[in-house]
Nucleic acid binder design. Structure first.
Length: 347
DNA sequence: AGAGAGAATCTCTATCTACG
DNA sequence: CGTAGATAGAGATTCTCTCT
């Protein structure tokens, strides 16, 4: 059955490939792009081509680089973000590509919305969005990338397609924004003040709700209470100490139990760094070599002695009666046990 | 030093829509 | 009705900034 299906698919794919090799299909949108680039290249101007995904960036770059009508005219380069799955660039690579574009090495830059904001190239005189429409802010910002005088802005998409409709809606919203900005100085002062007051009240109410939710979360933890358990190295699973040793001050979680330091490696710096209320003295490492946090002293609480400020992402916990380790990405995400807060001393 | 907030830049996923 | 493709929004990751 599998073999039959495989053979059928293979035959069909070969037929499709043969058909397109003999009669290459012309994508009207690609053809429009080629003609636009050609026209601008003949005018010796530089431009941006914006697409939606990194995959399109690289594919379009390869296509344009080898297009017979564009050879010796269009010299494209491309840029994407740093953590793309398909193609990614380091900051150094990104800067190198931009330099190619700023100089005379390349005259077309193909990119995702990475360059939609912030990129300022005075000689960039046109922006082409290839099947890529975001919101009205994106439209305004991408158009703003063309800084040269008499610059042009294009959207390549099908007539009355969703992208075409979205772009038209963006334009309507943009017009509305401009109207509102122009109208603002002419508004009735009393009416405007009432509007601002109502908006401010609604914002404050939102913040109050957030605070109440935070309080609720704290109450939940208090109800959960402190639990017995152990603290382990996230990398090597080694037991580092008891959960009861853990204390907190504001957002810093620390251990100052002497026994903790016997099971870890504390490397002191030659020079100490002084922050507002703590003195950073070095680094505390697990025996596997992974850093667990900083070796510190609270300047205003010298009686606590040396402590280790634990990095949440380097450790995990095992609660008594539970077989599995638990981990948190941030201390504030802890919803499993309460931690003793460091009592402030009265001055 | 640590933490968290926020921004930037994708990637993933749930939902919607069109089609056979 | 089931499936595939499109889309919006959520989530993940990384970086920068500010505060303690």
């Amino acid at each position: 059955m599998d073999d039959t299906l495989y053979e059928r698919c293979r035959t069909e794919l070969e037929d499709i490939l043969k058909k397109y090799t003999e009669h290459p299909a012309v994508n009207p949108k690609l053809e429009s792009l080629v003609q636009l680039l050609k026209r601008h290249a003949l005018g010796a101007t530089k431009g941006l081509v914006l697409v939606k995904t990194t995959f399109y960036v690289k594919t379009l770059h390869d296509y344009l680089s080898t297009h017979p009508e564009l050879i010796n005219l269009v010299k494209p380069t491309w840029i994407v973000g740093q953590n793309s799955a398909d193609h990614s660039l380091t900051i150094h690579d990104q800067e190198a590509k931009l330099q190619q574009f700023r100089g005379n090495e390349c005259n077309v830059l193909i990119a995702t919305d990475i360059v939609q904001e912030g990129l300022d190239i005075p000689t960039c005189s046109y922006v082409i969005r290839y099947e890529f429409v975001s919101d009205e802010i994106g439209t305004i910002q991408s158009r703003g990338r063309a800084r040269a005088q008499n610059s042009s802005y294009y959207l390549i998409t099908e007539q009355d397609s969703i992208n075409h409709i979205r772009e038209k809606n963006n334009k309507t919203r943009e017009d509305y924004m401009e109207e509102t900005i122009a109208e603002w100085p002419r508004l009735n002062k009393e009416k405007f003040r009432n509007y601002v007051e109502a908006k401010t009240k609604s914002l404050i109410k939102g913040w109050e709700t957030d605070l109440q939710n935070e309080q609720k979360q704290r109450n939940v933890l208090r109800q959960v209470g402190r639990k017995d358990g152990a603290i382990h190295c996230r990398k090597c699973n080694a037991k580092l100490g008891e959960l009861s040793w853990l204390k907190k001050r504001n957002t810093t979680y620390f251990i100052n139990n002497a026994e903790f330091f016997t099971g870890t490696e504390c490397k002191l710096d030659k020079t100490y760094t002084n922050f507002q209320e703590n003195l950073v003295m070095g680094e505390v490492k697990c025996t596997c070599g992974d850093s667990l946090g900083g070796c510190q002293k609270f300047m205003d609480r010298p009686e606590l002695g040396t402590l280790c400020a634990l990095k949440c992402k380097q450790i995990k916990f095992k609660l008594v009666g539970e077989p599995n380790y638990i981990e948190f990405a941030q201390w504030s995400k802890n919803n499993r046990f309460d931690v003793e807060e460091l009592q402030e001393i009265d001055n």
